[in-house]
């Protein structure tokens, strides 16, 4: 088969481009350590979240020095807890599920973004910095009230976290 020399050049450049893209993504994974939402958690019964010790009471919990876990339930049409309150400069692992239909969980303008699928638990770990207020949106259509579904992520100072934590626990 006859292929023009210029076309061979372009073919080679195209393959270089593809390898460059794959290389960038791989660099992101091993350099800055970006990890994907995966199947790390077992499936759960979405109709019986009240029997699950994580999601019966959605909350933020300290699990290590400067390490926190947030158990978040998405539902038509909101997130629980809201706001999610975490202390500054900490590592936060979010476990997110849905108790009804498929939702999205996106901290607007950041890289924290995942699907919330009933029966599945999405796990994402992020490092938060300075105190700041972020908005959370549901970015998957979930029913007629979808556009009203929002939440908040509050990164607060150590002191505020201590006092809020004390006030929140029922």
């Amino acid at each position: 088969m006859h292929i023009h020399a210029y076309e061979k050049i372009w073919l080679a450049l195209s393959i270089v481009l593809i390898l460059f893209l794959l290389g960038s993504v791989t660099y992101g994974a091993v350099g800055p350590g970006v990890a994907m939402v995966a199947d790390s958690e077992a499936q759960i019964d979405a109709n019986a979240l009240d029997e699950d010790d994580r999601f019966a009471e959605p909350r933020v919990e300290q699990v290590g020095e400067n390490e926190y876990e947030a158990y978040v339930v998405a539902y038509q049409f909101g997130f629980d807890p809201s706001p999610i309150v975490v202390p500054e400069d900490s590592t936060v692992t979010l476990q997110i599920t849905s108790r009804d239909v498929i939702h999205g969980f996106e901290v607007a303008g950041t890289n924290a973004n995942t699907m919330a699928v009933p029966g599945e638990v999405a796990e994402v770990t992020v490092e938060v910095g300075e105190p700041q207020e972020y908005g959370i949106v549901c970015n998957e259509y979930c029913g007629a009230g979808h556009h009203g579904m929002e939440g908040k992520l509050h990164v607060v100072t150590e002191e505020e976290f201590e006092s809020e934590d004390g006030g929140d626990s029922e």
Binding site: L17, S24, V126
Partner: peptide, 23 residues
């Protein structure tokens, strides 16, 4: 153009954002 745009989007926009998912 593709290479430059990719470098901007991936290395500056994406990796420069808050709340990079690390686990």
């Amino acid at each position: 153009i593709l290479v430059l745009a990719w470098v901007y989007i991936y290395y500056i926009e994406f990796l420069g954002r808050d709340l990079v998912v690390v686990g």
